[in-house]
């Protein structure tokens, strides 16, 4: 009985995925059943997306990010798995892409879909600093967002980013206006006191300090920071400076996803 209530999560692997293990652990930690599935299994039909409730595309460097980050996997989703993924989404299920997964969702046109078109309208380009950087960032979670992953999340969370191509840019100002209007902006970088950031608090130069967005339904989330790297309280870079907390800030995001199916 209990087993049946556990939502099943498909953590998608491809050549060069590398945050699959900790993403699987994050979902397991909040009571989900999470499987690591190679994209070849979906392409060959050995495993079907329809048997899962949540699709997670983890961080990494799929296919080396050789042409641009996430591009090859994005094209695989767009040209080879489009029907399955569309059906999955339309049946009310959840999709989350973290870091490389976010880059994939954007380049596959699955985010932000401000109006129903699936044409790519935003992208994640090279950091203003010109290099890969690993650093912790303060984020505000937008309480007005329609995103199901962040419902009742504390307004401030602390996650690490680790990327070279994480600068969020939009095709034009109408896209940005729509994102705001639709409540699609989920996470924004901020200073430790919550105010508007500059580098390095905005670690990559993202437009409007945007770190994560969802689609208009709130069921597809993409973000550059890594919530799965802040599950245990000892992940916090300053945990030795204060009393150990009960859990890391990232847990709430995964718990919300699982709670959606409760």
């Amino acid at each position: 009985m209990v087993e049946r209530m556990k939502p099943r999560v498909l953590v998608l692997r491809a050549a060069g995925s590398n945050c699959d293990g900790e993403t699987q652990f994050a979902f397991q930690h909040v009571g989900a059943q999470a499987d690591l599935v190679h994209i070849n299994r979906l392409l060959q039909g050995d495993i079907r997306l329809v048997d899962y409730q949540i699709l997670a595309i983890p961080g990494g460097f799929t296919y080396g990010d050789d042409i641009s980050a996430g591009k090859i996997l994005a094209n695989q989703l767009k040209y080879q798995l489009a029907d399955q993924i569309l059906a999955f989404h339309q049946s009310g299920k959840l999709i989350v892409g973290i870091c490389n997964g976010f880059q994939v969702l954007v380049k596959a046109g699955m985010l932000p879909r401000v109006d129903t078109t699936a044409e790519q309208s935003v992208t994640l380009t090279f950091n203003d600093s010109g290099r890969f950087e690993d650093r912790w960032v303060e984020l505000t979670a937008n309480p007005k967002s329609v995103c199901v992953f962040t419902q009742e999340m504390p307004e401030r969370v602390y996650f690490p980013v680790a990327h070279a191509e994480g600068k969020f840019v939009v095709q034009d100002s109408t896209v940005l206006a729509k994102l705001h209007e639709n409540g699609q902006i989920v996470f924004r970088y901020c200073r430790p006191d919550g105010s508007e950031p500059t580098y390095p608090d905005n670690p990559n130069g993202s437009v409007d300090h945007i770190a994560g967005i969802c689609d208009p339904t709130g069921r597809v989330l993409g973000l550059m920071p890594h919530p799965e790297r802040h599950i245990d309280p000892t992940n916090h870079p300053q945990w030795t400076r204060r009393a150990l907390r009960a859990e890391g800030d990232g847990v709430a995001l995964f718990r919300n996803a699982v709670a959606y199916y409760a």
């Binding site: 900790e22 690993d134 680790a162 790297r229 599950i231 000892t234």
Partner: peptide
Amino acid sequence: IRQYDHEVQGGSVLKPLLGAEN
């Protein structure tokens, strides 16, 4: 140090950069 991903795999406890401002 910042150019290296020192947190991947999710088990980082003491990082190479730490303190009040990391």
